[in-house]
Design a protein around this nucleic acid. Sequence first.
DNA 1: TGCCAGGCCCTCTTTAGGGCCTT
Length: 207
Amino acid sequence: MGERVIIDFETTGLSAMQGDRATEVAAVVIDETGIVGRFQSLMNGGRRIPPFVQDLTGISNAMIRQAPRAEEVMRQLLDFIAGRPLVAHNAAFDHGFLGAELDRIGEACPTGLLCSMKVARRIYPEAPNHRLETLIRHARIEATGQYHRALADAEMTALLWLRMERKLQNDFDLPEVSLELMQRIQTAPCKAVDKCVASFKRRVWPA
DNA sequence: TGCCAGGCCCTCTTTAGGGCCTT
């Protein structure tokens, strides 16, 4: 499998559609060897961060006032992504902010984001829940930093993604795990993952 | 502190409701 980029946004709230803005973004590149590239920046979108979210993330309005403009950061992010496939934890959330911020600078939003939460619900159905923090503990991955900061969350999502790929490869004795297989898994019925992988394996590597 | 949204997923479902997950 080639390189993939894991992205994570911190924001002023939950809804880009209702005017919330990104406050920080991070992206990490992975290949079969692990994390091979990192991008992180605070970003100023001109919207105040509510106290609850400041407490959650540790990102204050003072920090944002000194940050580069959102438009500038999004152009840097696009350059960093460079057209590679994207992954995020609860991808619908990050995709919403990615699209909204790119729309503000007249750029098209990449499509087809893969979702580590959807895949995790199928690979680790026994986990207590499927929050990033819980999955990191469940998969016995060492935390790389403070949760709810973009770079740490992107790094930990990356390590979780790599771990899930490896688990699939081992559990199903696959020569490799492709993006197409991950895409199929995340849309398969939760109780039919084994059937989905077996069908894929028969088609791609016929006996 | 937890609501705000939206899509997914499960079930005591499908003519629906509620929990999960992201900030």
